[in-house]
Each structure stands twice: as C-alpha cells, then as structure tokens.
C-alpha cells in the first residue's frame, strides 16, 4: 500500500507542477504585454518599460516562472492588479472557505439522498420506479447549473418572498449576496438555495453510478449463492450487495470534487454567493486580474488533487486488493 500511495503522491506533485506551468503560460504569455494591459493603451513607452521592470517582466520567462512558483510555494501570492490592491492570499482563502461551506452543505444534502435513490433504482432495475428515477436524473443532468439555479430563484425564492413564515426565518432569499466575511449562522439562510441547485447537479451523477454499482453486484455469483443457501433477501442486500456496491461510491464522491467546483463557479454567479467561483468570474476575469487568476486556479486544482488523493487512500483502505499490490 505504501508503494501505491507513494506513486499517487508523486503523481500529485507532477500534476501540480504541470498545472503551474500551464497557468503561468495562460496568464503571462497569452495576454501579451502585461504592463501595457495594466497601464492602458495611452501609457508612454517609458512608463510601460518602468512597469515591466517593476514587475520583473523584462527577465527571461524561465526566471519569471521560477520566481513566481517560489513565491507561490512560500505563501507570497502577491497583491491584486486591480485597485484597491489587496493581499491575494487573504481573499482567496476567505472565499475558498465560503465555497467550502457551500460544498459541505451540498454534500450533506446530496449524498444520503442520491445514494438512497441510486440503491432503490438499482434494486428495481427495469421496473417503472427505476425508469422514473432514471428519467428524473437524466433530465436534471441535462439542465445546465444556471438554468436549475434560475429556476429555483424564480419558483422557490420569489414565491416564498411574501410568505410570512419565510420572511421570519429568512430562508431562501432570491439573492445570496451576503458579506464575504459573514459567519456561518448569518450565511446559512442564504446558502440553502445554492446548495439545492448544486445538490441537483451532483445528485444526478451519484445516482447513476450507485445504480450501476448495485446492478453489477446483483449479477455476481456470490449473491446467487447467498440467495440459494436460504438467506433472507433483506440480509443479502444489506450485508452483501450494498457493502460491495457502495465502496466505489465513496471514491466517486471524492473524485466528483472537480465536477462540483465547476458547478459552483456557475451557481455562485447565479446566486451572487461570495465564494471562489464568483471571485474568479467577477473580480479576477472581469478585471483581468492576472495574479488573482493564477492564485485561484492553483488553489482550486490543489483542492481537487487533495480530494483525489483522499479518494485513493480511502479506496486503498476499503479495498484490500490494492493494499496487497
């Protein structure tokens, strides 16, 4: 198992390195002259040259890359290009935590619900109940996140607005534009709706995989054996089928982080929720804030890789065959 984990760890570092090169190329080479971008079209050549020197852009690309990566690794992520010039590490981590809260709430809602639906669908394969669940998940998976999100706003939020109970509780506001430094208690009412939108996205994905896992396990020889030796159906399902069918699910949930993050980017934009996705779209991309883009992409990829690595570890723990490899 140690060898397996070591191999995964090496891959983790390799991916991070490759990502950093890609991010560097995207943000330093693709936009052309960064100094010109910063100062605008009318700036004098001298001013541009001075800015280039100030930012270290007059050095060879390799030197710039090594300096940038060194700064990133040691926690110096620089300040934003756009004014007010803020410390990037601070806002990125704050927004990341906000997104993490939303993702956590989503998982709490999505995982039990979708595992239950997936198991039900798998156990009743081919029957109307299975078809109903399959059609439901297929249609939800077909809707882009912004459509689901706007649908929730237009139905749930706007309908609830005039309801006295809803107003008293404060749940389901149409916009989740809370302060970025809001505490969990303050943020929670505004988080339900975006979490529901993200749940729908994630749910469709997990349901399909759980269903496939259950159907596959049901066909195995040991299941027939258990039935033939007279075990009650209940026991066969609970002790044999589910145990095996749900192992891959745990890792699937961890590896769907990337999926969840792209969903979050859109959902946060729909609901104006102050997470990392909204920071990327509204602040980094709209203001062409290149250092901010760099930091956000690097942190996001890091989160995805940590999740994938956790999935590998969990898989190794749950599946003895990997451990012995």
């Amino acid at each position: 198992m140690a060898r397996f984990l070591l191999r995964r760890l090496l891959f983790f570092l390799f991916t991070l390195l490759l990502t950093s090169i890609l991010v560097f190329i995207l943000t330093r080479v693709l936009p052309g002259d960064v100094a010109r971008v910063l100062l605008g079209r009318e700036a004098s050549p001298e001013a541009v040259a001075a800015k280039r020197a100030e930012l270290g852009l007059d050095q060879p690309l390799v030197v710039q890359y090594v300096e940038w990566l060194g700064g990133f690794v040691t926690g110096d992520w620089g300040t934003t290009f756009s004014t007010p010039r803020q410390d990037i590490a601070g806002i990125v981590i704050q927004r990341m935590l906000n997104s993490g809260r939303l993702a956590g709430l989503t998982l709490i809602l999505a995982v039990p619900l979708s595992v239950a639906l997936g198991v039900i669908a798998g156990l009743s394969e081919g029957r109307p109940l299975d078809s109903a669940i399959s059609i439901l998940t297929l249609s939800v998976v077909s809707l882009p996140e912004f459509v689901t999100g706007l649908f929730l706003i237009n139905t749930v939020a706007l309908k609830w607005q005039d309801n006295p109970i809803a107003r008293a509780v404060g749940w389901f506001p149409a916009s989740s534009a809370i302060r970025a430094d809001a505490s969990f208690r303050e943020a929670l009412p505004a988080m339900w709706l975006p979490a529901m939108a993200a749940t729908l996205v994630l749910m469709a994905y997990i349901v399909r995989l759980v269903r496939a896992g259950v159907i596959e396990e049901l066909k195995r020889g040991y299941v027939r054996m258990a039935v033939l030796k007279g075990l009650p159906y209940r026991v066969v399902i609970a002790k044999h089928v589910l145990r095996n069918a749900l192992i891959p699910t745990i890792t699937v949930i961890a590896t769907s982080t990337g999926w969840l993050i792209s969903g979050m980017v859109v959902i946060e934009s729909v609901f104006s929720y102050p997470g990392i996705g909204r920071l990327l779209v509204n602040n980094a991309i709209n203001n062409r804030d290149l250092p901010l883009i760099q930091a956000i992409v690097m942190v996001t990829v890091m989160v995805i890789l940590v999740a994938n690595f956790t999935a590998d570890v969990l898989y190794a723990i749950l599946n003895p065959r990997i451990r012995l490899e």
Binding site: L26, T27, P31, W259, I261, L280, R288, I293, V301
Partner: peptide, 25 residues
C-alpha cells in the same frame, strides 16, 4: 501521465480563464 494531469483541471475552469484573457485582447 500528462493527460491525467491535464484532466485534473475542470474543463469549465480552463475554458473560463482562457476566454476571459483572450476576449479582452
């Protein structure tokens, strides 16, 4: 390995960043 590493980045994120940078040039 390179392909696996590239796939660690969500497609939406890469597309968003590239287009966000290119559209203003």
């Amino acid at each position: 390995r390179v392909i696996d590493a590239l796939l660690a980045m969500p497609a939406l994120l890469i597309a968003l960043v590239i287009l966000g940078i290119v559209r203003n040039l």
